[in-house]
């Protein structure tokens, strides 16, 4: 079991195939509409005037796969009135369903939309970093399923040494709000955080 687990996503190699989403849904037997991992397609661009007076396009699209980032300063944990949303000893953010009142407050606050409502049980649910797999020494289902090896996981410090500081990239929110345990390597067309020249083009999927 890792002491301080974190995710890494290489946006440059992610093809947006959503195998990670499906693997997560399958492994956790998630209900219709509940997605602990979501792959957003961020797209945009337009016409750009060149120095010779002609115009060209700068359209772009890339994918970013995000689940719960088990943040260092998780807003879902601080707003939760019951303490059902909590961090365990290794920093994994979990829901104690015997305490959760299903008030949706965590869902309202998380900028990654990680907490998802389980309507059948009347409580919130979320990515648990495949804690059971990790205890067996196996990688999380999403990481194991990724065909391009764009998703990885590991000790926070090891990932930091390997991939460097996380990129501040659109459409991710300002990491200073929750301090996510997520490292992002941007692709060739990645836009800086808050650039506002694109939008998530598959909102119905995420």
């Amino acid at each position: 079991m890792l002491k301080h687990p974190a995710f890494h996503i290489d946006v440059g190699t992610c093809t947006g195939c959503k195998t990670c989403m499906i693997a997560c849904k399958d492994k956790n037997d998630l209900a219709d509409g509940v997605k602990w991992r979501r792959v957003s397609e961020y797209a945009g661009g337009g016409w750009v005037k060149r120095t010779d007076g002609t115009v060209t396009q700068d359209v772009f699209a890339y994918y970013i796969s995000v689940s719960c980032n088990h943040c260092e300063d998780p807003i879902c944990v601080s707003v939760c009135p019951t303490t059902a949303m909590h961090k365990d000893e290794s920093g994994i953010v979990l829901v104690d369903t015997t305490k959760c009142i299903g008030c949706h407050y965590c869902e309202w606050a998380c900028p990654y939309r990680a907490p998802q409502y389980n309507a059948a049980a009347g409580v919130m649910s979320k990515c648990n970093f495949c804690i059971d797999y990790q205890r067996e020494g196996k990688p999380p289902a999403c990481v194991a399923a990724c065909p391009t090896r764009s998703l990885t996981f590991g000790e926070y410090d090891d990932l930091k040494k390997r991939f460097g500081e996380s990129a501040l990239m659109a459409p991710l929110p300002d990491p200073s709000i929750t301090k996510p345990n997520l490292f992002v390597t941007p692709g060739r067309t990645a836009k800086p955080m808050g650039s506002g020249n694109g939008s998530i083009s598959n909102p119905e999927e995420v």
């Binding site: 019951t82 009142i101 009347g122």
Partner: peptide, 12 residues
Amino acid sequence: LGSPMHSPFALF
């Protein structure tokens, strides 16, 4: 609330 029976925990 999805689970009103858990509401006493809301003061935790």
